[in-house]
Simulated scan of single mutants.
Amino acid sequence: MKRRQIFGFLGIAIIGLLLTVGLPLVTPSPVIAQSNTDILISAAASLKDTLEEIKPLYQQSKSNININYNFGASGALQQQIEQGAPADIFISAGKKQMDALEKKGLLVSGTRANLANNRLVLIVADDIVGISSFYDLTDAKIKKIAIGEPRSVPAGQYGQEVLKKLKLYDRLKPKLVFANNVRQVLAAVESGNAEAGLVYATDAKISKKVKVVVAADDKYHSPIVYPIAVLKSSKNPSAAKEFVQFLSTNPAKDILRKYGFIVP
């Protein structure tokens, strides 16, 4: 038998053996897994609880989207973005910070919208009595009043506007303790480091250690609005736009309302 015929018979025999034991003749193409996409959202500290609850709701239908948050004072977040810090979406607690980014051309055109509104309230520690208005903050029992730093914390800006409108700012200035964000104001009153503080109604709502004395009249401060937009620096603008759109759906709005936000 010629050598070529021998190799032919051997080849047929090997193929038959492979088929018998069930081994594949051709290496299958690997299954391509669905790739994950990361989205980083820089958001005002007052949105922390709300956005944390929205996250798993969104991921029920978008399991390949990894949502990460960077919470802080709106002014500080604005500066981070201006200095090139990575972020896909920005949610501010005031127009001023978003306006600054828009003026510098850092927003994706057509993505800016107003997510929600809020109210500014005066809170005191649970054991404080006899305080029923902003004017009562002049009482000797109130030694420290926590307020956000007006230059970087929108809640502080609104608080300063209210106190100036009521002609109380100069009288109360020695008592003011400035915080880096509104949640630090809340924590100061909760811990007893301040007898009173100016926070959003949504912040007061999540605490069992403080009580609301009075809500500031809207005419005494700039509108408390939460603008949202996709940033031009986003590495995943399509996914970012989808998340922004989701925040305007009824399920997301229900969660915003649950925490006390006023939804347009």
Rank of each mutant, 00 (worst) to 15 (best):
S222H: 05
S207M: 06
P251E: 03
A240L: 05
R171Q: 15
N193M: 11
Y220M: 14
D218A: 15
L176F: 11
L231D: 15
E242H: 02
K241V: 07
P174C: 12
E195V: 15
V213P: 14
E242T: 05
K209M: 11
S234R: 13
S191Q: 11
F246M: 02
S238D: 12
L172K: 09
N180Y: 04
A216M: 12
Y200R: 03
Y169V: 10
K211H: 15
S248M: 04
V199F: 07
T202L: 01
A204D: 00
S248C: 00
K208H: 13
A201G: 08
A239F: 04
L168T: 02
R171F: 09
V244E: 04
A188R: 05
K211L: 12
E195P: 13
Y220I: 06
K219L: 12
P223Y: 08
R183D: 08
K165Y: 12
A196E: 10
V177C: 00
A215W: 06
P237I: 11
A204S: 00
V213G: 12
P237G: 08
E195A: 15
H221L: 10
E190F: 10
V212K: 05
Y169S: 09
S234Y: 15
S207V: 09
A215Y: 08
V210K: 09
K205E: 05
K208W: 07
P174H: 13
L231V: 14
S222C: 08
Q184H: 05
S248I: 00
